[in-house]
Structure formats: structure tokens, C-alpha cells
Amino acid sequence: MTDPTPIDRLSRHALVMALWTPAGFVAVALLHMGLTGGGPWWIAAGMAMILAAFVGHIIINVATSSSFTSGETALGALSYSAALVALVLGRLIGPDDMGEGVFLAIGVGLAVILAAVIVYMLIAFGPRGAFARFDVIRDNNLRASSRLQHRGGRR
């Protein structure tokens, strides 16, 4: 979406919410089922739902010629970090009967989501562009020459 109007931005936001609201509810229900005694397959189903919604979000980005907004990226990173911390804490100080199956299902699910994010970034931005997204050190270099194209400048 080149130079989107406010209507375009709201329309895209509504579309993203139309995807994540039902998918999120279903994922929460499946994860809850798995964590309250249903077993690892329900957790895997919940993770698969999140992955499917992520793929749907990428399709929306392609269809609307847009990318993840900073708010979406922040929310995604925060949720992912919280899930990761909860998993580690759960394993360390949680109940003993938190089986390996549950740990494995959540761990593999989070790993697959991370892999999906990496694959998406590689395809969308290329290896160099994907790395540049995290290369905050270079952002601190304010020399004018850093902006030159042949020096990898991107600001």
C-alpha cells in the first residue's frame, strides 16, 4: 500500500482484526483445553491455529501491499516473549505433573512460529534486509557516509 490514506489504514486494521479475533479465540480455547488436561495434541492444534492466523496475516499484507505495523510487531514480540518466559518458568517452578508432552508441544509450537517469522522475513526482505531489521548498532552511526547505498546505507 503506497502512501495509504487513513481509510486504507483503518480498512487494513479491520481486516487484520477480522482475522485475529476469531482465530485468537479458537487458539485460546484449544490451548486451554490442552493445558487443563486435554493433552499435547490440543496444544499443538492451538499452536497450528496461531500459525495459520500468522500466515493469513502475511496474505493480508501481500493483498494490501503493506507490511506489519510497528504496533503489530510490538504486540507480537511481546506476546511471544511472554509465552517463552511462561514456558521456562512453568518448567522450572511449575507443578511436577506438567508433563514433557505439554512442554514439548508448546516448545515446538513456539519454535515453528519463530521459524515461520524468519522464513517470512527472508522471503520478504532478503537475507541482508532481514538482518538489517535487527541491526540496531548501525542505526547509531550518524555519519553521512553511512547513508550511501554502496556502504549499505538505508536511512
Binding site: S11, M17, T21, P22
Partner: peptide, 17 residues
Amino acid sequence: VQTLAMLSVLILLFVLV
């Protein structure tokens, strides 16, 4: 219309699940 579109997605997905 934007809100009802979400409800439509929700209904279709929930029935399946």
C-alpha cells in the same frame, strides 16, 4: 459493514471448530 464482516468470519470458523 466492517464489524459484520468480522462476525461473518467468526461464525464460519466457529461452526467448523
